[in-house]
């Protein structure tokens, strides 16, 4: 479904991502793991057109998405949950969800999806009229995921959903991520928490200094001595 070939990204002469190639099949959850600064977020930003690329190609559903405008990415069916959540702090929770459905015009469908999100995250329903900036970090993460789902995407890109959250909150968030995946969503997951990422995905790629050094079945990588040594603290 998503095919990234030879993607290169440079920041002012520094190669943040050097020619990486990977793909995500329909219905699959694929994790991209690696240390801080390995180029994970850069890769996601490049796919979602928030930053320009230095070379390579990105295809989504067979269509080249490299040259399109950033605001057209969601039209193609790709929804990004950005690093640091990126909720609109002075919009209410409900307004944030409506922003997720910005390109949709079907009022009934939007209302039904809003209820569906409240089903995933009952906390959001309680706080529907509260400004998003007043939510806790975990609640903001829930909101960011729900907002992305409101566009009815074909694929979800998750950037560090566990970042800065209490373990219990991380469990809750990942439970929903797994439910969404089980319902058929294609997911590209970026995580520093390698154990969590490998446990929640079918396949994974390991990114080191802007290059993919390992890839394979998540279950196998979980037992790979190199991965265990470098990312699972053994």
């Amino acid at each position: 479904m998503l095919e990234v070939t030879g993607l290169r990204v440079a920041y002012g002469g520094i190669q943040a991502v050097r020619s990486i190639t990977f793909h995500v099949n329909e219905g699959e959850t694929v994790a991209l793991i690696g240390a801080n600064g390995a180029g994970k977020t850069t890769t996601l930003k490049a796919i979602s057109r928030m930053i320009g690329i230095a070379g390579g190609d990105v295809h989504f559903c067979g269509e080249k998405i490299v040259g399109i405008a950033p605001h057209d990415i969601i039209r193609k069916g790709i929804a990004l949950v950005p690093e640091g959540r990126g909720v609109f702090p002075r919009l209410t929770v409900l307004e944030n969800l409506r922003m997720g459905a910005f390109l949709r015009d079907d009022k009934d469908g939007i209302a039904a999806d809003t209820e569906r999100m409240y089903g995933y995250f009952p906390r959001l329903k309680e706080r529907a009229d509260q400004l998003a900036g007043t939510l806790s970090g975990g609640e903001q993460q829930m909101l960011a995921i729900a907002r992305a789902l409101m566009s009815r995407p074909k694929m979800l890109l998750l950037d560090e959903p566990s970042m800065g959250l209490a373990p219990i909150m991380v469990q809750k968030i990942f439970e929903v991520v797994r439910n969404v995946a089980a319902a058929g969503m294609t997911i590209l997951l970026i995580e520093q928490n390698a154990k969590l990422a490998l446990e929640s995905s079918q396949r994974a790629y390991v990114l080191e200094s802007g290059e993919i050094t390992l890839n394979g079945e998540s279950a196998a990588l979980l037992h790979d001595p190199k991965v265990r040594a470098a990312y699972l603290g053994e």
Binding site: I74, G86, L91, M99, L103
Partner: peptide
């Protein structure tokens, strides 16, 4: 109006939602 407020608060994310800044 909602798009304007969202853009004022975070233009990058607003464009991810499909708003043409």
């Amino acid at each position: 109006g909602m798009a304007m407020r969202a853009t004022a608060q975070n233009p990058e994310v607003a464009s991810l939602m499909g708003v043409n800044i």
